[in-house]
């Protein structure tokens, strides 16, 4: 069955034939992050795909993945394009290297999971938190609940671990 929800006033839909995305967001709705693991080569991939980008096998299984990682790159948006995000600026778009499968199979590879910087309850983070985050920041996954069966994975500063002495931020504030 298709899932529809509204998030920040935006209509989000996953069609009933889109079984990969339905399953992905269903696990997120349980606040339990899962990715597809290939039945042939065992590698994880993100976002959901219909075959394995590593070995082209069709069959996969869903595997629980620890939602912890390091900010690989980011953008800080000051001029929102979508009406939903006006009034939410500045907001961060984070590209996070998961600890799981990092630097595999080559040193440049990682499962790079997108998300906004959020508070621990999945709300877009306020400006003082935005200013603390840069490349190298340790983050953990939280979720923004949208509808039954649909939550968005998001990131928050991981206060349970020690952060690097400094992180890289764009030089102009």
């Amino acid at each position: 069955m298709a899932i529809r929800g509204e998030y920040l006033g935006m209509g989000l839909t996953v069609d009933e034939l889109d079984v990969e995305n339905l399953e992905y967001f269903r696990h997120c709705a349980e606040h339990d992050f899962h990715l597809q693991a290939c039945m042939q080569c065992g590698r994880l991939r993100y976002p959901p795909t219909t075959a394995c980008p590593w070995c082209a096998a069709l069959d996969s299984t869903w595997k629980r993945v620890d939602g912890r990682g390091t900010v690989h790159s980011y953008s800080e948006v000051h001029h929102a394009i979508q009406p939903a995000f006006r009034g939410k600026t500045p907001y961060l778009i984070l590209l996070v290297d998961l600890d799981t499968q990092k630097a595999e199979p080559t040193p440049d590879e990682a499962l790079r999971v997108v998300g906004n910087l959020c508070t621990s309850d999945g709300q877009l983070a306020p400006a003082d938190q935005v200013r603390r985050v840069g490349i190298g920041t340790r983050v953990r996954m939280v979720f923004s609940d949208v509808a039954p069966g649909l939550s968005l994975p998001q990131w928050t500063i991981d206060e349970t671990v020690s952060q690097p002495a400094s992180v890289w931020r764009y030089p102009q504030e």
């Binding site: 998030y7 996953v14 967001f25 997108v114 968005l152």
Partner: peptide, 12 residues
């Protein structure tokens, strides 16, 4: 926002 583009547009 439908399907695969949830992974980008839903995040602004």
């Amino acid at each position: 926002i439908v399907g695969d583009i949830l992974h980008n547009r839903a995040y602004g």
